[in-house]
Protein backbone atom coordinates (compact mmCIF):
# COMPACT_ATOMS: atom_id res chain seq x y z
CA UNK A 1 0.00 0.00 0.00
CA UNK A 2 1.30 3.41 -0.96
CA UNK A 3 -0.89 6.44 -0.15
CA UNK A 4 -3.74 4.06 0.45
CA UNK A 5 -3.53 2.58 -3.07
CA UNK A 6 -2.74 -1.06 -3.52
CA UNK A 7 0.33 -2.11 -5.51
CA UNK A 8 0.56 -4.82 -8.12
CA UNK A 9 2.34 -7.85 -6.78
CA UNK A 10 3.31 -10.59 -9.21
CA UNK A 11 5.97 -13.22 -9.72
CA UNK A 12 9.13 -12.13 -11.51
CA UNK A 13 10.10 -11.28 -14.23
CA UNK A 14 8.50 -7.87 -14.27
CA UNK A 15 9.63 -7.14 -17.82
CA UNK A 16 8.14 -8.92 -20.80
CA UNK A 17 9.15 -8.90 -24.43
CA UNK A 18 6.93 -7.06 -26.87
CA UNK A 19 6.33 -10.23 -28.89
CA UNK A 20 2.72 -11.36 -28.62
CA UNK A 21 0.74 -14.14 -30.22
CA UNK A 22 -1.17 -11.56 -32.23
CA UNK A 23 2.01 -9.94 -33.57
CA UNK A 24 3.39 -13.34 -34.59
CA UNK A 25 0.18 -14.21 -36.44
CA UNK A 26 0.15 -10.79 -38.07
CA UNK A 27 3.67 -11.46 -39.33
CA UNK A 28 2.57 -14.77 -40.80
CA UNK A 29 -0.38 -13.06 -42.49
CA UNK A 30 1.94 -10.44 -43.96
CA UNK A 31 4.32 -13.16 -45.11
CA UNK A 32 1.45 -14.85 -46.97
CA UNK A 33 0.47 -11.67 -48.82
CA UNK A 34 3.00 -11.93 -51.69
CA UNK A 35 1.70 -15.40 -52.52
CA UNK A 36 -1.90 -14.16 -52.36
CA UNK A 37 -1.15 -11.29 -54.73
CA UNK A 38 0.70 -13.66 -57.05
CA UNK A 39 -2.30 -15.99 -57.09
CA UNK A 40 -4.61 -13.16 -58.09
CA UNK A 41 -2.27 -12.15 -60.91
CA UNK A 42 -1.82 -15.73 -62.12
CA UNK A 43 -5.27 -17.19 -61.73
CA UNK A 44 -7.48 -14.15 -61.65
CA UNK A 45 -9.46 -12.25 -59.03
CA UNK A 46 -11.53 -15.32 -58.19
CA UNK A 47 -8.64 -16.46 -55.98
CA UNK A 48 -9.33 -13.47 -53.77
CA UNK A 49 -12.96 -14.46 -53.51
CA UNK A 50 -12.02 -18.03 -52.58
CA UNK A 51 -9.59 -16.70 -49.98
CA UNK A 52 -12.15 -14.27 -48.56
CA UNK A 53 -14.73 -17.03 -48.17
CA UNK A 54 -12.19 -19.32 -46.56
CA UNK A 55 -10.91 -16.70 -44.12
CA UNK A 56 -14.39 -15.47 -43.24
CA UNK A 57 -15.56 -19.03 -42.55
CA UNK A 58 -12.49 -19.63 -40.39
CA UNK A 59 -13.15 -16.55 -38.28
CA UNK A 60 -16.87 -17.24 -37.94
CA UNK A 61 -16.40 -20.89 -37.07
CA UNK A 62 -13.75 -20.11 -34.49
CA UNK A 63 -15.97 -17.46 -32.92
CA UNK A 64 -19.02 -19.74 -32.92
CA UNK A 65 -17.13 -22.81 -31.70
CA UNK A 66 -15.61 -20.93 -28.76
CA UNK A 67 -18.97 -19.39 -27.93
CA UNK A 68 -20.82 -22.73 -28.01
CA UNK A 69 -18.11 -24.41 -25.94
CA UNK A 70 -18.31 -21.50 -23.46
CA UNK A 71 -14.64 -20.67 -23.83
CA UNK A 72 -12.91 -17.30 -24.11
CA UNK A 73 -13.07 -15.58 -27.50
CA UNK A 74 -9.81 -16.10 -29.36
CA UNK A 75 -10.35 -14.58 -32.80
CA UNK A 76 -8.32 -11.59 -31.60
CA UNK A 77 -5.10 -13.61 -31.78
CA UNK A 78 -5.54 -13.73 -35.61
CA UNK A 79 -4.61 -17.39 -35.82
CA UNK A 80 -7.97 -18.21 -37.47
CA UNK A 81 -7.07 -15.84 -40.31
CA UNK A 82 -3.78 -17.69 -40.84
CA UNK A 83 -5.62 -21.01 -40.98
CA UNK A 84 -8.20 -19.56 -43.38
CA UNK A 85 -5.47 -18.26 -45.67
CA UNK A 86 -3.59 -21.55 -45.67
CA UNK A 87 -6.74 -23.54 -46.40
CA UNK A 88 -7.44 -21.25 -49.38
CA UNK A 89 -3.85 -21.57 -50.59
CA UNK A 90 -4.34 -25.32 -50.81
CA UNK A 91 -7.36 -25.09 -53.10
CA UNK A 92 -7.50 -24.71 -56.87
CA UNK A 93 -8.81 -21.36 -58.12
CA UNK A 94 -11.87 -23.04 -59.60
CA UNK A 95 -13.08 -24.57 -56.36
CA UNK A 96 -16.79 -24.06 -55.62
CA UNK A 97 -16.98 -21.54 -52.79
CA UNK A 98 -18.98 -23.82 -50.53
CA UNK A 99 -16.18 -26.40 -50.64
CA UNK A 100 -13.73 -23.73 -49.52
CA UNK A 101 -16.07 -22.95 -46.64
CA UNK A 102 -16.35 -26.63 -45.71
CA UNK A 103 -12.56 -26.89 -45.67
CA UNK A 104 -12.13 -23.91 -43.35
CA UNK A 105 -14.92 -25.07 -41.06
CA UNK A 106 -13.36 -28.51 -40.82
CA UNK A 107 -9.90 -27.08 -40.14
CA UNK A 108 -11.05 -24.74 -37.40
CA UNK A 109 -13.77 -26.72 -35.69
CA UNK A 110 -12.76 -30.36 -36.04
CA UNK A 111 -8.98 -30.14 -36.14
CA UNK A 112 -8.32 -27.09 -33.97
CA UNK A 113 -11.15 -26.39 -31.53
CA UNK A 114 -12.21 -29.97 -30.79
CA UNK A 115 -8.73 -30.52 -29.42
CA UNK A 116 -8.67 -27.41 -27.28
CA UNK A 117 -7.85 -24.53 -29.63
CA UNK A 118 -4.59 -22.83 -30.39
CA UNK A 119 -1.50 -24.78 -29.43
CA UNK A 120 -3.45 -27.94 -28.62
CA UNK A 121 -4.18 -29.44 -32.03
CA UNK A 122 -1.90 -32.31 -32.97
CA UNK A 123 -2.26 -31.97 -36.72
CA UNK A 124 -2.00 -28.92 -38.93
CA UNK A 125 -5.60 -27.72 -39.57
CA UNK A 126 -4.95 -26.58 -43.14
CA UNK A 127 -3.18 -29.83 -44.05
CA UNK A 128 -5.99 -31.97 -42.70
CA UNK A 129 -8.54 -29.79 -44.48
CA UNK A 130 -6.66 -30.23 -47.75
CA UNK A 131 -6.51 -34.00 -47.34
CA UNK A 132 -10.17 -34.27 -46.33
CA UNK A 133 -11.27 -32.16 -49.28
CA UNK A 134 -9.01 -34.09 -51.65
CA UNK A 135 -10.52 -37.38 -50.55
CA UNK A 136 -14.08 -36.06 -50.52
CA UNK A 137 -14.11 -33.84 -53.60
CA UNK A 138 -11.36 -35.35 -55.74
CA UNK A 139 -12.54 -33.92 -59.03
CA UNK A 140 -13.15 -30.35 -57.87
CA UNK A 141 -9.86 -30.36 -55.95
CA UNK A 142 -7.82 -31.14 -59.06
CA UNK A 143 -9.45 -28.78 -61.54
CA UNK A 144 -6.42 -26.69 -62.34
CA UNK A 145 -6.53 -23.70 -64.67
CA UNK A 146 -3.88 -22.36 -66.99
CA UNK A 147 -2.22 -19.26 -65.60
CA UNK A 148 -3.22 -15.89 -67.06
CA UNK A 149 -6.39 -17.28 -68.63
CA UNK A 150 -8.29 -16.20 -65.53
CA UNK A 151 -10.93 -18.77 -66.39
CA UNK A 152 -13.32 -19.85 -63.71
CA UNK A 153 -14.08 -23.13 -65.39
CA UNK A 154 -11.41 -25.77 -65.57
CA UNK A 155 -9.63 -26.06 -68.88
CA UNK A 156 -6.68 -28.23 -68.30
CA UNK A 157 -5.83 -31.10 -66.09
CA UNK A 158 -2.30 -31.49 -64.91
CA UNK A 159 0.24 -29.92 -62.62
CA UNK A 160 3.95 -30.08 -63.50
CA UNK A 161 4.47 -32.92 -61.05
CA UNK A 162 1.81 -34.98 -62.81
CA UNK A 163 3.30 -34.08 -66.18
CA UNK A 164 6.78 -35.06 -65.08
CA UNK A 165 7.65 -38.36 -66.69
CA UNK A 166 5.07 -37.99 -69.45
CA UNK A 167 5.81 -36.75 -72.94
CA UNK A 168 3.83 -33.54 -72.59
CA UNK A 169 5.70 -30.26 -72.66
CA UNK A 170 6.76 -28.95 -69.27
CA UNK A 171 6.90 -25.33 -68.12
CA UNK A 172 10.39 -23.91 -67.90
CA UNK A 173 12.20 -23.43 -64.58
CA UNK A 174 11.62 -19.69 -64.75
CA UNK A 175 7.92 -20.27 -65.27
CA UNK A 176 7.96 -22.55 -62.24
CA UNK A 177 9.82 -20.02 -60.15
CA UNK A 178 7.35 -17.29 -60.99
CA UNK A 179 4.38 -19.61 -60.59
CA UNK A 180 3.28 -19.70 -64.20
CA UNK A 181 1.87 -23.22 -64.08
CA UNK A 182 -1.13 -25.12 -62.79
CA UNK A 183 -1.59 -25.85 -59.13
CA UNK A 184 -3.30 -24.78 -55.93
CA UNK A 185 -3.72 -21.06 -55.77
CA UNK A 186 -1.10 -20.33 -53.15
CA UNK A 187 1.54 -22.90 -53.92
CA UNK A 188 2.65 -22.10 -57.45
CA UNK A 189 4.67 -18.89 -57.13
CA UNK A 190 7.97 -19.95 -55.59
CA UNK A 191 9.31 -16.40 -55.66
CA UNK A 192 6.43 -15.07 -53.52
CA UNK A 193 6.67 -17.96 -51.06
CA UNK A 194 10.41 -17.53 -50.63
CA UNK A 195 9.92 -13.81 -50.08
CA UNK A 196 7.39 -14.57 -47.33
CA UNK A 197 9.71 -17.16 -45.81
CA UNK A 198 12.57 -14.70 -45.77
CA UNK A 199 10.38 -12.18 -43.96
CA UNK A 200 9.45 -14.75 -41.32
CA UNK A 201 13.09 -15.66 -40.80
CA UNK A 202 14.14 -12.03 -40.46
CA UNK A 203 11.34 -11.36 -37.99
CA UNK A 204 12.43 -14.50 -36.13
CA UNK A 205 8.92 -15.89 -36.31
CA UNK A 206 10.19 -19.23 -37.62
CA UNK A 207 13.53 -20.91 -37.18
CA UNK A 208 15.30 -21.96 -40.38
CA UNK A 209 15.74 -25.54 -39.17
CA UNK A 210 12.53 -27.08 -40.46
CA UNK A 211 12.36 -25.40 -43.90
CA UNK A 212 16.06 -26.01 -44.54
CA UNK A 213 16.10 -29.65 -43.45
CA UNK A 214 12.80 -30.35 -45.26
CA UNK A 215 13.81 -28.77 -48.57
CA UNK A 216 17.40 -29.96 -48.22
CA UNK A 217 16.34 -33.58 -47.75
CA UNK A 218 14.08 -33.44 -50.80
CA UNK A 219 16.90 -31.87 -52.82
CA UNK A 220 19.41 -34.49 -51.76
CA UNK A 221 17.15 -37.47 -52.42
CA UNK A 222 16.02 -36.10 -55.77
CA UNK A 223 19.66 -35.53 -56.68
CA UNK A 224 20.33 -39.21 -56.01
CA UNK A 225 17.21 -40.29 -57.88
CA UNK A 226 18.04 -38.07 -60.85
CA UNK A 227 21.67 -39.24 -60.90
CA UNK A 228 22.94 -35.72 -60.34
CA UNK A 229 20.55 -34.02 -62.76
CA UNK A 230 20.27 -30.53 -61.23
CA UNK A 231 17.47 -29.52 -63.58
CA UNK A 232 15.38 -32.38 -62.25
CA UNK A 233 16.16 -31.39 -58.67
CA UNK A 234 15.17 -27.77 -59.27
CA UNK A 235 11.98 -29.00 -60.89
CA UNK A 236 11.03 -31.08 -57.91
CA UNK A 237 11.79 -28.26 -55.48
CA UNK A 238 9.81 -25.62 -57.33
CA UNK A 239 6.73 -27.64 -58.15
CA UNK A 240 3.92 -29.00 -56.03
CA UNK A 241 3.27 -27.79 -52.53
CA UNK A 242 6.83 -28.22 -51.27
CA UNK A 243 7.71 -24.59 -50.61
CA UNK A 244 4.29 -23.69 -49.21
CA UNK A 245 4.45 -26.78 -47.02
CA UNK A 246 8.04 -26.40 -45.88
CA UNK A 247 7.87 -22.69 -45.13
CA UNK A 248 4.34 -22.18 -43.87
CA UNK A 249 2.79 -25.49 -42.88
CA UNK A 250 5.57 -27.64 -41.43
CA UNK A 251 6.67 -24.69 -39.30
CA UNK A 252 3.26 -24.36 -37.63
CA UNK A 253 4.06 -23.97 -33.93
CA UNK A 254 1.35 -26.23 -32.55
CA UNK A 255 2.24 -29.18 -34.71
CA UNK A 256 6.02 -28.98 -34.93
CA UNK A 257 8.54 -29.75 -32.17
CA UNK A 258 9.64 -27.27 -29.51
CA UNK A 259 13.34 -28.02 -29.51
CA UNK A 260 15.93 -27.70 -32.28
CA UNK A 261 17.08 -31.29 -32.42
CA UNK A 262 13.54 -32.60 -32.80
CA UNK A 263 12.87 -29.91 -35.41
CA UNK A 264 15.79 -31.17 -37.47
CA UNK A 265 14.51 -34.75 -37.39
CA UNK A 266 11.00 -33.48 -38.12
CA UNK A 267 12.21 -31.60 -41.21
CA UNK A 268 14.27 -34.51 -42.50
CA UNK A 269 11.33 -36.84 -41.91
CA UNK A 270 9.00 -34.55 -43.86
CA UNK A 271 11.48 -34.47 -46.75
CA UNK A 272 11.98 -38.21 -46.73
CA UNK A 273 8.26 -39.00 -46.72
CA UNK A 274 7.59 -36.42 -49.44
CA UNK A 275 10.13 -38.11 -51.70
CA UNK A 276 8.83 -41.58 -50.94
CA UNK A 277 5.30 -40.51 -51.86
CA UNK A 278 6.31 -38.56 -54.93
CA UNK A 279 8.46 -41.39 -56.27
CA UNK A 280 6.71 -44.55 -55.20
CA UNK A 281 3.09 -43.77 -54.35
CA UNK A 282 0.29 -43.33 -56.84
CA UNK A 283 -0.15 -39.68 -55.86
CA UNK A 284 1.65 -36.93 -57.68
CA UNK A 285 1.98 -34.94 -54.47
CA UNK A 286 3.12 -36.07 -51.03
CA UNK A 287 3.85 -32.94 -49.02
CA UNK A 288 0.55 -32.88 -47.12
CA UNK A 289 0.71 -36.50 -46.08
CA UNK A 290 4.37 -36.20 -45.15
CA UNK A 291 3.68 -33.26 -42.85
CA UNK A 292 0.59 -34.94 -41.37
CA UNK A 293 2.51 -38.10 -40.53
CA UNK A 294 5.37 -36.13 -38.99
CA UNK A 295 2.83 -34.04 -37.01
CA UNK A 296 1.74 -37.24 -35.31
CA UNK A 297 5.31 -38.11 -34.38
CA UNK A 298 6.03 -34.75 -32.70
CA UNK A 299 5.42 -35.85 -29.09
CA UNK A 300 7.73 -38.83 -29.56
CA UNK A 301 10.44 -36.75 -31.22
CA UNK A 302 10.29 -34.24 -28.40
CA UNK A 303 10.53 -36.93 -25.80
CA UNK A 304 13.45 -38.66 -27.51
CA UNK A 305 15.44 -35.49 -28.06
CA UNK A 306 14.51 -33.45 -24.98
CA UNK A 307 17.54 -31.32 -24.07
CA UNK A 308 19.37 -32.50 -20.96
CA UNK A 309 19.26 -30.03 -18.07
CA UNK A 310 22.37 -27.83 -17.85
CA UNK A 311 25.39 -29.62 -16.44
CA UNK A 312 23.96 -33.16 -16.60
CA UNK A 313 27.13 -35.27 -16.68
CA UNK A 314 27.72 -37.19 -19.91
CA UNK A 315 27.98 -40.53 -18.12
CA UNK A 316 24.60 -40.06 -16.52
CA UNK A 317 23.13 -39.41 -19.95
CA UNK A 318 24.27 -42.81 -21.15
CA UNK A 319 23.01 -44.50 -18.03
CA UNK A 320 19.65 -42.83 -18.46
CA UNK A 321 19.47 -43.97 -22.05
CA UNK A 322 20.22 -47.52 -21.02
CA UNK A 323 17.64 -47.29 -18.28
CA UNK A 324 15.10 -46.04 -20.81
CA UNK A 325 15.86 -49.00 -23.07
CA UNK A 326 15.54 -51.52 -20.27
Amino acid sequence: MVNGKKLYVSASPHLRSTVTTRRIMLDVILALMPALIASAVLFGPRTLLVTAVSVATAILSEYAARKIMKRSATIGDLSAIVTGLLVAFNLPATIPLWIAAVGSFFAIVVVKQFFGGIGQNFANPAIVARIVLLLSFGAQMTNWVEPFTWKTTPVTGATPLALLGTDESLPSLLQLFLGEHGGCLGETCAAALLLGGLYLLLRRVISPIIPCSFIGTVALLMLLKGHGDLHFVAYELLSGGLLLGAIFMATDYSTSPLNSKARLIFGIGCGLLTCVMRLFASMAEGVSFAILIMNLLVPFLERLTAPKPFGTPKKEKKEKKEAAKA
Binding site: V19, G116, Y253, S254, N259, P307
Partner: peptide
Protein backbone atom coordinates in the same frame (compact mmCIF):
# COMPACT_ATOMS: atom_id res chain seq x y z
CA UNK B 1 -2.09 -14.42 -20.41
CA UNK B 2 -3.25 -16.54 -23.36
CA UNK B 3 -2.98 -20.17 -24.30
CA UNK B 4 0.49 -21.53 -25.07
CA UNK B 5 1.07 -21.59 -28.82
CA UNK B 6 4.03 -23.97 -28.54
CA UNK B 7 6.33 -21.55 -30.32
CA UNK B 8 9.34 -22.85 -28.41
CA UNK B 9 10.67 -19.42 -27.45
CA UNK B 10 10.88 -20.45 -23.79
CA UNK B 11 12.87 -23.56 -24.75
CA UNK B 12 15.24 -21.49 -26.86
CA UNK B 13 15.61 -18.87 -24.09
CA UNK B 14 16.31 -21.23 -21.18
CA UNK B 15 20.01 -21.04 -20.28
CA UNK B 16 19.55 -24.25 -18.31
CA UNK B 17 18.35 -26.30 -21.32
CA UNK B 18 14.94 -26.93 -19.84
CA UNK B 19 11.58 -27.03 -21.59
Amino acid sequence: EHDCIRCGRCVAACPMSLM
